[in-house]
Design a protein around this nucleic acid. Structure first.
Length: 470
DNA sequence: TAGCTCGTTGGACAA
DNA sequence: TTTGTCCAACGAGCT
């Protein structure tokens, strides 16, 4: 008797519900096998260290969910085409499905693989599902990709976003999950993440439910205050596709319909979700946004080479409390509040005039949500080389921003405890504090806490001049 | 077509 | 203390 076996190649879609590729395979095949490849193809950006830790746990969770559906999850390393060929042979695969990805190098690789497999008379289908709207399905009146967010959002908002798919039915009796990443042990340093995060599809749905229930109404204002943190914390779940953007979209909308007063808050939240799509729009339509500035003139930017300053920034030892707090939060938790991400990025790329790509790389390695599209697009936005970037004169002042968004100093005191005895008045600017105030707080500048690494006023002028020369 | 408005997230300084 | 104004130039997107 002929039994057809479908293969689902999983990438950024580690979920069983609303997974178009998985659903299609389950629908049309008698048996289904899932595959994840740690890819070594050149041009394919491997996840950073923190994301790699997340991925490990997410695969274990997914393997268990798939096993309950009678689907084994195979995890391999190597070049995608080679691994696929092996698995297709050993599992007698007849059809292959995957959900699309959008970086130029990924698109090219997937296209090449698809053509090769089809030449071998295998049925290959790619599916949408990792963005709200496919990047080529949304364009300006002139038929061009959007480069300004507001009109992009206006157009996206009026689109009919596809309804999420149900979790597929069992294709066979439950099986015992295979061991995932048998030769991979999460690195020692990742111990610090244990207990901070709940990983996997169920955890992702819990996160959005909790957010909509508890935080949504405070979101439009509260999202700017790092100490309160009323954000959804969905970013790493979205990064690995433990939940799909359209699941988030429709879950939030469904909730709003029963709470009319929350409409504005929902709109704000969904517009932030749309920023993710806008980033993918850029990722798809532009050349390697992690490397090339989207505004070509920025290729001529005279970045400073300053390893010492870069290192101080990475370690959270800049002497700017809110910056240091953010960088330490990142190191300790794999995450940083969005407002603070902008501040630390502004300090690096503007005040320190260090190439944004160095910061982008650090984030990529440290963030559990380090995303192909969001991370480089946002860095370029702050640095000024991005689309729809802030006017050149918008340079954040960490002290002013700290006073505005962390007025009570709670965030700073949590992550920079060595200055916590400072009164609120000086908590965001210890380098300017009077001697007796510092002494009373037990702080010796340059010893127990660094002096400010740059003069904000001077470095601001320097950044303005450097950009004016472009 | 030509013109108009606006650009996610700000700062400095004057009044 | 708060409010208003200015800070490039440009090009996207709309009317």
């Amino acid at each position: 008797m002929d039994r057809s076996t479908g293969l689902v190649w999983l990438r950024n879609d580690l979920r069983v519900s609303d997974n178009p590729a998985l659903a299609a395979a389950c629908r049309e095949s008698d048996a289904v096998v899932a595959l994840y490849i740690h890819e070594s193809d050149t041009g394919i950006r491997p996840p950073g260290a923190a994301a790699r830790w997340w991925l490990h746990h997410s695969l274990i969770d997914l393997g268990e969910s798939l096993a309950k559906l009678g689907i084994p999850l195979i995890v391999r390393s190597g070049k995608a085409a080679d691994v696929l060929a092996e698995v297709i042979k050993s599992e007698s695969i007849t059809t292959i499905h995957w959900n699309r990805r959008y970086a130029p190098a990924e698109v090219a690789l997937d296209k090449e693989i698809k053509e090769n497999l089809r030449q071998q008379d295998l049925a290959v289908t790619s599916h949408p599902g990792n963005v709200l709207v496919e990047p080529w399905m949304i364009e300006t009146g002139q038929g061009k990709p959007y480069s300004v967010f507001s009109p992009f959002w206006k157009t996206l908002r009026d689109k009919q976003i596809e309804q999420p798919l149900q979790k597929p039915h069992k294709v066979g009796d439950p099986i015992k999950p295979k061991q995932i990443d048998a030769d991979y042990r999460p690195p020692k340093w990742s111990k610090k993440f244990d207990g901070l995060w709940a990983i996997g599809e169920a955890a992702a749905h819990k996160a959005i439910d909790r957010f909509l229930e508890q935080n949504l109404e405070y979101y439009p204002e509260g999202r700017n205050f790092p100490a309160k943190d009323v954000t959804s914390r969905l970013s790493p779940h979205l990064r690995f596709g433990e939940i799909s953007p359209r699941q988030v979209w429709h879950t939030a909308l469904a909730r709003t319909h029963s709470h009319h007063d929350q409409r504005a808050a929902t709109e704000k939240f969904l517009s932030e979700l749309a920023w993710r799509d806008f980033s993918y729009h850029q990722l798809f339509h532009r050349e390697d946004i992690a490397k090339a500035p989207m505004q070509p003139k920025y290729s001529a930017m005279e970045w400073r080479s300053d390893e010492k300053a870069l290192h101080a920034w990475e370690k959270g030892e800049t002497g700017m409390p809110i910056v240091d707090a953010g960088m330490r939060q990142l190191w300790a938790t794999g995450y940083m509040h969005n407002r603070v991400r902008m501040l630390v990025a502004s300090l690096l790329s503007k005040n320190l005039l260090i190439d944004w790509r160095k910061g982008e790389n650090w984030f990529w390695d440290c963030l559990v949500d380090g995303d192909m599209a969001n991370n480089p697009a946002s860095w370029q936005w702050v640095a000024g080389s991005g689309l729809d970037a802030a006017p050149y004169f918008r340079i954040f002042n960490p002290a002013t921003q700290g006073e505005r968004f962390d007025a009570a100093g709670d965030y700073v005191r949590e992550w920079v405890p060595e200055i916590k005895a400072l009164p609120d008045k000086w908590i965001h600017n210890p380098s300017a504090a009077p001697k007796d105030v510092l002494k009373a707080a037990g702080i010796a500048l340059g010893t127990t806490y660094p002096r400010a690494i740059v003069d904000l006023k001077e470095s601001r002028e320097r950044a303005l001049e450097a950009q004016a020369r472009l």
